[in-house]
């Protein structure tokens, strides 16, 4: 029953997304234009660590933009009708999974665009598989934190401003972990070398999901 609800919710979200194509295209446009502005000011970045840091900052801001909207529509009548039928725990898990898929897609798009517009030397040793793991784990923790915090922020008037104030301090540490992890991948590290990053990031992700799962019903029960 619980899993069924989540699957149903995912389908529903996807359907809405398909109907409102302008939303996803506006986020992609946001990413492309941000990267383009960066490329106008840098074109080449000699230092790979700066290149990597810039990439993560762009990811952080574009995901904040994308996920801030996840609880915006909840006040419309149709949504309220839907949500009364659904377990709040299924709802938050569904939202987290949906936002995770969305953010992985967005991150992959932005990685290609970023690589296309901004060149750097020293990517010869890069371990692409490990970099992918870093990106997936990092964006998981960013998107799941943002999902939970956007549920909190949606109760206030100033949604996106409050969202970034509330979420960024919580996000700084996992962002630091992801940046160090992906730097290691760029330098050609192996899975064994980065075992502690993988363990820490997965633990943090698990913790965020558990906390959201436990706390979300309190936000919902109005």
């Amino acid at each position: 029953m619980f899993v069924k609800q989540i699957v149903h919710l995912l389908k529903h979200e996807l359907l809405i997304e398909m109907k409102q194509k302008h939303f996803i295209s506006s986020i992609v446009l946001y990413i492309v234009s941000t990267i383009f502005v960066c490329s106008l000011s840098f074109t080449t970045i000699a230092e790979t660590s700066i290149w990597n840091g810039l990439f993560w900052i762009i990811i952080l801001f574009s995901l904040t933009n994308a996920i801030s909207k996840s609880f915006l529509n909840e006040n419309s009548d149709k949504q309220i009708f839907l949500y009364t039928l659904i377990n709040p725990r299924a709802l938050i898990l569904g939202k987290i999974i949906y936002n995770l898929l969305l953010s992985i897609a967005l991150v992959l798009i932005s990685f290609f665009v970023f690589n296309f517009f901004i060149q750097t030397e020293g990517l010869d040793n890069m371990n692409y598989g490990l970099y992918l793991i870093a990106v997936v784990l990092g964006s998981t923790s960013i998107s799941s934190t943002l999902t939970m915090v956007s549920a909190i922020a949606s109760k206030t008037n100033n949604n996106i401003g409050i969202l970034s104030i509330l979420a960024f301090p919580i996000l700084i540490p996992s962002l630091l972990l992801s940046i160090q992890f992906s730097n290691l991948a760029i330098l050609g590290g192996t899975v064994e070398m980065s075992a502690q990053f993988i363990v820490f990031l997965s633990l943090i992700n698990l913790l965020i999901v558990i906390l959201s799962f436990l706390l979300f019903p309190y936000l919902w029960r109005e």
């Binding site: 915090v149 909190i152 160090q180 502690q196 990053f197 943090i204 913790l207 959201s212 706390l215």
Partner: peptide, 21 residues
Amino acid sequence: AVYNIFAFVLMIVFLMILPRI
């Protein structure tokens, strides 16, 4: 209260992890 619990737990975990790396 929800934000307080969420942030405190994550903060403690980060404060434990960060010095190790």
